[in-house]
C-alpha cells in the first residue's frame, strides 16, 4: 500500500474528489478522508440497525398471520431484513468498523435507527401498510444510494432495493385484497392503519431542508458533495408523496391530510405540515415503542452471549487441534 504522509494528503484528497466527481466508485482500499469514512460508517450502521430493529414490528404478526400464504410472505420478509442487516454490517466492516462494537452502540442508544420502527403494529393491516408506505418511503430514500460513491454500499443497496420493492408490492397486494375482496371490517382496518402510518412515513425522510425545523447539523451539504447522499430530504419526500397519492386512490383509502391536493403549477402534490415536535420526540427516544424495541434487541444480545462464547470456544479448540503438529514444535 502507498505510504500516507501528511505532505501527500492534498494530492490524495484531490484524487479522491475527482473520482467522486466523475461518478466513479471509492473502494475499501482506496484512500478516503477520515470524515468520509466516519460519515459512511454512521450512515451504513444506522441503516443496518434500522433493518434489525425493523424486524420487530413485523415479527409481531408472524405467528398470528391469518393465512399460511401471508405467514410465509411475512416470515420471508423478516428474514430478508436480517439478511440486509448482515450485509450492511459487512459493508461497515470494509470501512474498518466492527459489528459487535456497532451492536453495542445500538443497544446503548449511542447510534440511531429509523424512527418509524418506534410506532406499534396494532392490526394485521399494519403489515400491509408497512409494506406499502414504509417500504415505499425506504425505497425512495435508498434507490439513489445505489449510486452512492462508496462501492460496497452502492452494490449492497442494489440488492436491498430489489428486495424492498418486492416487499412493497406484496404489502400493496395484501391491502388490495383486503379492500377489494375483504369484509367491511377489513376495509376499516386498512383505513385505520393508513391513518396511523401516513405521517410517520413522511417523517422517514428526516427534517426539512429549510425553515425552523431544519437540521443544523450540516450533514446534508457535505454528504451531497461526497455523493453519499444524492437528493435532499424534501426532494425525496415530495417524490414519495407524488408516487403514493395515486396508489391510495386505486386502493380506495383516504390519506389523513385535508391539505393534500394536486398543484398543477408545481407539477407536484401539496401536502400539510408535518408535526416536527412529534418527530423530535420520537427521534430523541420518546416514541411509543423506543424503549421496548431497544430492550428486545438488548435482551436477544445478552441472552445470546453464552452461545457466542461457546461458539468461539469451540472454534478455538478446533483451531488449536488443527494446528497441533506445528504448535507442538
Amino acid at each position: 500500500m502507498t505510504t500516507e504522509t501528511d505532505a501527500a494528503t492534498p494530492d490524495l484528497e484531490a484524487h479522491f474528489q475527482r473520482t467522486v466527481d466523475r461518478d466513479q466508485r471509492i473502494e475499501p482500499r482506496d484512500w478516503m478522508p477520515d470524515g468520509y469514512r466516519k460519515t459512511l460508517i454512521r450512515q451504513v450502521a444506522q441503516h443496518a440497525h434500522s433493518e434489525i430493529i425493523g424486524m420487530q414490528p413485523e415479527a409481531n404478526w408472524i405467528t398470528r398471520a391469518p393465512s399460511l400464504r401471508r405467514k410465509a410472505i411475512l416470515l420471508a420478509k423478516v428474514q430478508d431484513e436480517a439478511g440486509h442487516g448482515l450485509y450492511l454490517y459487512s459493508a461497515t466492516e470494509t470501512l474498518g468498523a466492527d459489528r459487535t462494537d456497532l451492536t453495542e452502540k445500538l443497544i446503548e442508544s449511542r447510534q440511531k435507527y429509523s424512527s418509524i420502527f418506534n410506532y406499534p403494529t396494532l392490526t394485521f393491516a399494519d403489515v400491509g401498510v408497512i409494506g406499502w408506505l414504509v417500504d415505499g418511503a425506504a425505497i425512495c430514500n435508498q434507490v439513489p444510494l445505489c449510486r452512492s460513491s462508496y462501492g460496497p454500499y452502492a452494490r449492497g443497496m442494489v440488492r436491498i432495493c430489489k428486495e424492498e420493492s418486492f416487499h412493497q408490492r406484496q404489502g400493496y397486494e395484501l391491502l388490495m385484497t383486503m379492500m377489494q375482496r375483504g369484509t367491511e371490517a377489513q376495509r376499516r382496518m386498512v383505513q385505520d392503519a393508513t391513518e396511523r402510518w401516513w405521517w410517520p412515513s413522511l417523517m422517514m425522510f428526516g427534517p426539512p431542508d429549510t425553515g425552523d425545523a431544519a437540521s443544523t447539523s450540516g450533514h446534508t451539504q457535505q454528504s451531497m458533495a461526497w455523493k453519499v447522499k444524492r437528493h435532499t430530504n424534501d426532494e425525496l419526500r415530495q417524490r414519495f408523496v407524488d408516487m403514493t397519492v395515486p396508489q391510495a386512490d386505486v386502493l380506495g383509502v383516504t390519506l389523513p391530510d385535508p391539505e393534500l391536493a394536486w398543484n398543477s403549477r408545481r407539477g407536484h402534490y401539496d401536502f400539510g405540515e408535518i408535526d416536527w415536535d412529534e418527530f423530535k420526540q420520537v427521534v430523541s427516544g420518546g416514541g411509543p415503542c423506543n424503549a421496548e424495541r431497544l430492550a428486545q434487541r438488548r435482551r436477544a444480545h445478552e441472552d445470546g452471549a453464552w452461545v457466542r462464547e461457546a461458539a468461539a470456544a469451540h472454534a478455538a479448540k478446533h483451531a488449536s487441534h488443527d494446528h497441533q503438529p506445528m504448535d507442538a514444535s
Binding site: A59, I62, T63, G85, L86, Y89, Q296, A300, D303, G304
Partner: peptide
C-alpha cells in the same frame, strides 16, 4: 421457530432459523 424471530443470539441464526421455519 417463528416465535424465535428477533430473539436469537446472532444475525446468522436469525436468517437460519427463519429459513427452517419457512
Amino acid at each position: 421457530l417463528q416465535q424465535w424471530c428477533t430473539s436469537l443470539p446472532e444475525l446468522e441464526e436469525e436468517v437460519a432459523v427463519a429459513n427452517i421455519g419457512l
